[in-house]
């Protein structure tokens, strides 16, 4: 629940900017795993990984955002299996912060994937809109 006072965010770095996900939407953060090619998948699908027996698609967030290619140094955020069999490859993970440490503001410029801005001092963190991200990813399939 977004209004839940015990809510926490997972903050990650992507192309020099800060992003966040609701911590409860993330099942695990893992080192880049071995991935296997997916026939006819769009370029932003790096491949599929075996996450505790679940076949999980690994998404190249940088590629999806037209900002180059995933960095081999990055980290992989595996989403909760109830949402999707999807993992997001990001440049790095920065922190886990409690919801009350930030001020939630509406997204300023809309890149279509930001649910809100989380402001903490001078830092502005983009809260990723997972539902929209998933829909966008699905729209690119079979193109």
């Amino acid at each position: 629940m977004k209004s839940d006072e015990t809510a926490r965010y997972l903050v990650f770095v992507q192309r020099g900017a800060l992003y966040a996900l609701d911590l409860q939407d993330v099942a695990e953060v893992v080192e880049p795993p071995p991935t296997f090619p997916i026939p006819r998948a769009p370029a932003h699908f790096i491949g599929v990984m075996n996450f505790h027996g679940n076949l999980t698609t690994v998404l190249d967030l940088a590629n999806l955002q037209d900002r180059g290619k995933f960095s081999t140094e990055g980290k992989v955020l595996v989403l909760d299996g109830r949402l999707a069999n999807l993992a997001i490859w990001v440049d790095g993970v920065s922190a886990i912060i409690p919801a009350e440490a930030v001020q939630r503001e509406p997204a300023d410029e809309d890149d279509g994937l930001t649910a809100a801005l989380l402001c903490s001092g001078a830092d502005k963190i983009r809260l990723l809109a997972l539902d929209r991200l998933l829909r966008r990813v699905e729209e690119t399939i079979n193109d």
Binding site: I38, N54, L55, A84, L86, L134, E138, I141
Partner: peptide
């Protein structure tokens, strides 16, 4: 055979995955 789940289940021509 393992199910593909979201989003890959939408990909045409695949019915599942296996290890």
């Amino acid at each position: 055979v393992k199910p593909l789940g979201r989003p890959l289940v939408k990909l045409k021509g695949l019915s599942g995955g296996a290890v």
